[in-house]
Design a protein around this nucleic acid. Structure first.
Length: 685
DNA sequence: ACAGCTGATTTTTTT
DNA sequence: AATCAGCTGT
C-alpha cells in the first residue's frame, strides 16, 4: 500500500484538490460538473488509471465517450500514467454507446433471438430502406409531397432516442410534417418489421436492444455484474434512452461516474436534454458531486466573453457558473465586422497567415462554424493561398456517392443476402435500372446466392460484360480473404463505372485507394465494414481534401465536431442571426438556448486568441431559399454586454461613396419619353 | 415495360 | 446541390 501511494503521488499531486477528490472517490455514484477547459479529460483518465492501479481488472471498467477517438486517446493517456506501476489500461472497454452496444450484442445475440450475422445499417442504408418501404406503402402518390427519406429517418430517430410519442415529436420539432402523422406511423411500423425480417439493426436499434438486454430479468443481472465501474463522458449530451441503459446497468451496483457540463449540451436533435445533468442527483440520490471551476485552457478575457454570453440567458436556464482562468490575463477577443462574406474569408485568411508567421503552427488554429457550408468561400480562399486544411463535420465520408457505391459492392461480397447493397451495385451497370435489378435479385435469392445464375438472365447488351466481371468479383471472397486485396478487386471492377458516372474520376479514385490502406488494419472484410459504419474516417476532407504538402494543416470544423477540442487561435464564422442562431432553430426557446450554448462551446475552444466574424451581407444558397443575398444582422447572442467584452475591427469595403461624374459638356435636348413610347407603338403582333 | 431524363421541391448539427 | 415524381423515347 505504501509503495502504491508513492507511485500515485507522481501524477496525483499534479491534480487540483477537486480533481483529486473525483479521481480517488471511494465508491458510489459520482457526478463531476466540469466547466469547459477545467481538466475533465485528465480527471477521467486519472480515474481510470487510479482504478486499475488499485487492482480493478481493466476489462471490468466501462468508459463511455462521445466519439471513438476520445476513448482511445483517454485510454492511451491512462496507460501513460500507469507505466511506472507496470500496468496498463488496454483491455478497458472504451468507446461510444453505439460501439459498446455492438460488442455486447455480438456476444449476447443468440440469447436475444438475434441472428449472429446481424448487420448494422448506417444512416444512409436506413434511409434507403425507408425509401423502399415508402414506395411499397404507396406514399409517393400523394397530393402534397411526402417528407424525404432523410427527414423520415430523422423523425423516427428522434422519437426513439427521446423516447417520446410520434405526435409530440412532430408537433415540437417537425411541425411541417404534422399532416403525415398516420402515414409515418405506418411507415415506421413497416420499417421495424422489415429490419427484423432481414436481421438488420440501425444505429438506434443498437441502443434499443442494449436497453432491452439490460432490463431483461435473466440477462440484465449478468450484464450488470460484468462491470465494476462505469464512467461516462459528456454526460450532458446523453439522451433518455442512454440514461435508461445506465440505470439498468447500475440497478444494484453503484459505481457510476458521470462527467459533463450543462452549458455545453448541444445535441437536442439526438434527444439530449440540458436538464439531464441536474437529474443525475435525482436518479442517484446518494451521489457525490464534485465541481471543477478552474479553467486551465483560456486566458481571462476569452473566459470573460464566454461568461457574459451565458449570463445573458433568460432566467431559469441553468446555474450561472463563472469560469476562472488559471492562466491569467491575455488578448481581448475580437469582433470582426466584415462588409460581406468575401471580406470575411479574406480577413480570416490574412489573420491565419499572420499568426502562422508569428510561429503558431496551422494545426493549433481552428475555424469553427454552425453549418458545414458556412466555410465554402473561406475554403476557396485557403486553396487560392495554398493554406492546407482539413475539414471535420458536414458531408460524411460514407455519404459521398462513389464511396457508397464501392462500400455497397464490398457489403454484397461479404453478405450475399444484402439486398440494398446488391440493388445499388447492379444499377451501376448501363441499361439496368430498378426493375431489372430487382429481377436479377430475385433470381439470386432463388438460387440461394449462387452468383453465376445472374448470367442466365437476359440483360441489355451494354450491361453484359460488366455483369460477367461482377460475378467474378463477388466470387473472389471464396478464394481470397485478405481485406486490402478484396478492396482492390472491388475498385478494379468499379473504376470504369465511376469514371463514366461522375466528374473528377481521378480524385475519387484516389480517395478510394485510401480505403485499401484502412482495410489493411483488419483481420476480415466483415470487421472492416462493421467498423466503417460505426466509425467512418472523420469528414470527407480526410480522404478527398486537397493534397497535403506537409504534416501541418489548419482545422475547419462544425462546432458540433469541435466538441472537446482546443486550439491556440479560434475563429467563429458567421455570427449573424439566421446563421447562428440558425434560422431553422428559432421556433422555440429551447432551440434558441441550445444555439446559445453552441456559441459558448465555440468561444471556450480558444486558448489565446478568439475572433468572431460577422459578415453584414451573406449569400444564402441551398435548399428552400434560392440563391440570393441578404442583409444579416449581428447574432442576437452578441448583446451589448457581450460586445463590450470584445474589441471591434472593421474590414472590407465600406459602402463606397457614389463616384463623382465629370461635369457633362452641354448637349442638345432629346425627347427620351417619346422614343420609349414609340417602342410599344411600333411593336407588331 | 423500362431506363434515363426533366423540372419542381427541398429544413442544420451526428453516433 | 440533391432528391424525387412524372414524363418521354426506346
Amino acid at each position: 500500500m505504501n509503495s502504491l501511494a508513492a507511485l500515485h503521488s507522481s501524477w496525483l499531486d499534479r491534480l487540483n484538490p477537486a480533481q483529486r477528490r473525483a479521481v480517488t472517490h471511494a465508491g458510489g455514484p459520482l457526478l463531476v460538473v466540469a466547466g469547459a477547459g477545467t481538466g475533465k479529460t485528465q480527471t477521467l483518465t486519472g480515474r481510470v488509471a487510479y482504478l486499475v492501479e488499485r487492482g480493478t481488472p481493466p476489462d471490468r471498467i466501462l468508459l463511455l465517450t462521445f466519439t471513438r477517438r476520445a476513448a482511445s486517446e483517454m485510454l492511451a493517456r491512462a496507460s501513460e500514467l500507469l507505466r511506472e506501476s507496470g500496468r496498463d489500461a488496454r483491455g478497458v472497454w472504451g468507446g461510444t454507446f453505439h460501439a459498446v452496444a455492438m460488442r455486447l450484442l455480438r456476444t449476447y445475440a443468440g440469447a436475444l433471438g438475434l441472428d449472429h450475422q446481424f448487420a448494422v445499417l448506417d444512416p444512409t442504408d436506413a434511409a434507403d430502406l425507408l425509401n423502399v418501404l415508402r414506395h411499397r406503402l404507396g406514399l409517393d402518390q400523394t397530393r402534397n409531397r411526402f417528407p424525404q427519406k432523410a427527414t423520415c429517418l430523422a423523425i423516427y430517430s428522434r422519437c426513439v432516442n427521446a423516447d417520446r410519442p410520434l405526435a409530440e415529436i412532430l408537433q415540437d420539432v417537425f411541425p411541417w410534417c404534422a399532416e403525415w402523422a398516420e402515414e409515418l406511423r405506418r411507415l415506421f411500423a413497416a420499417y421495424t418489421e422489415e429490419k427484423q425480417r432481414r436481421h438488420l439493426l440501425d444505429f438506434d436499434d443498437l441502443l434499443l436492444y442494449w436497453r432491452e438486454l439490460a432490463r431483461d430479468p435473466t440477462l440484465g443481472p449478468i450484464l450488470e455484474q460484468r462491470f465494476d465501474h462505469i464512467l461516462v463522458d459528456e454526460y450532458q449530451d446523453t439522451n433518455g434512452l442512454q440514461v435508461d441503459i445506465l440505470r439498468a446497468m447500475r440497478s444494484t451496483r453503484r459505481d457510476l461516474m458521470a462527467v459533463g457540463d450543462e452549458a455545453q449540451c448541444i445535441y437536442a436533435f439526438r434527444g439530449a436534454v440540458a436538464g439531464h445533468m441536474t437529474r443525475f442527483t435525482e436518479l442517484f440520490p446518494d451521489a457525490t458531486v464534485v465541481v471543477l471551476e478552474e479553467n486551465y485552457r483560456s486566458v481571462q478575457p476569452i473566459l470573460d466573453s464566454a461568461n457574459v454570453l451565458l449570463d445573458e440567458r433568460p432566467p431559469g436556464q441553468g446555474f450561472p457558473r463563472a469560469l476562472r482562468a488559471v492562466r491569467g490575463p491575455g488578448e481581448t477577443p475580437v469582433l470582426l465586422i466584415c462588409s460581406d462574406e468575401d471580406a470575411e474569408a479574406r480577413a480570416v485568411a490574412d489573420q491565419i497567415l499572420r499568426h502562422y508567421e508569428e510561429g503558431v503552427p496551422l494545426h493549433r488554429m481552428a475555424v469553427l462554424m454552425r453549418a458545414a457550408d458556412h466555410s465554402a468561400l473561406l475554403e476557396v480562399e485557403l486553396a487560392r493561398r495554398n493554406i492546407p486544411f482539413r475539414k471535420y463535420g458536414g458531408l460524411r465520408f460514407l455519404e459521398i456517392a462513389h464511396v457508397k457505391d464501392l462500400v455497397a459492392l464490398l457489403r454484397w461480397m461479404v453478405h450475399p443476402r444484402d439486398e440494398l447493397a446488391a440493388l445499388r451495385v447492379l444499377q451501376l451497370l448501363p441499361g439496368i435500372g430498378p426493375a431489372t435489378a430487382a429481377q436479377l435479385w430475385s433470381v439470386i435469392v432463388e438460387a440461394d446466392a449462387e452468383f453465376s445464375t445472374l448470367l442466365r438472365v437476359r440483360v441489355p447488351a451494354a450491361a453484359r460484360p460488366g455483369l460477367e466481371d461482377l460475378v467474378g468479383v463477388l466470387r473472389s471472397v471464396r478464394t481470397e480473404s485478405n481485406p486490402p486485396a478484396l478492396v482492390e478487386r472491388a475498385i478494379a471492377w468499379y473504376a470504369p463505372w465511376c469514371a463514366q458516372l461522375y466528374e473528377n474520376p481521378e480524385g475519387r479514385q484516389r480517395s478510394l485507394e485510401n480505403l485499401v490502406h484502412i482495410a489493411a488494419g483488419y483481420e476480415s472484410l466483415e470487421d472492416f465494414l462493421a467498423d466503417l459504419a460505426l466509425d467512418p474516417p472523420s469528414g470527407a476532407g480526410d480522404l478527398a481534401g486537397p493534397p497535403l504538402r506537409d504534416d501541418d494543416w489548419l482545422v475547419l470544423s462544425t462546432i458540433h465536431s469541435a466538441k472537446g477540442g482546443e486550439w491556440d487561435v479560434v475563429w467563429v464564422l458567421h455570427a449573424a442571426d439566421g446563421f447562428l442562431p440558425a434560422d431553422m432553430a428559432c421556433t422555440s426557446t429551447e432551440e434558441i438556448e441550445e444555439e446559445r450554448r453552441l456559441l459558448y462551446v465555440a468561444f471556450t475552444r480558444a486558448r489565446d486568441y478568439l475572433y468572431v466574424t460577422w459578415p453584414q451581407r451573406c449569400f444564402v444558397h441551398g435548399p428552400l431559399r434560392s440563391d440570393r443575398h441578404i442583409l444579416a444582422p449581428l447574432s442576437r447572442f452578441i448583446t451589448p454586454r457581450v460586445r463590450a467584452a470584445f474589441r471591434t475591427e472593421v474590414v472590407g469595403r465600406r459602402p463606397e461613396p457614389a463616384p463623382k461624374l465629370p461635369e457633362a459638356p452641354p448637349t442638345p435636348m432629346v425627347d427620351l419619353h417619346e422614343r420609349l413610347r414609340a417602342r410599344w407603338q411600333t411593336e407588331q403582333r
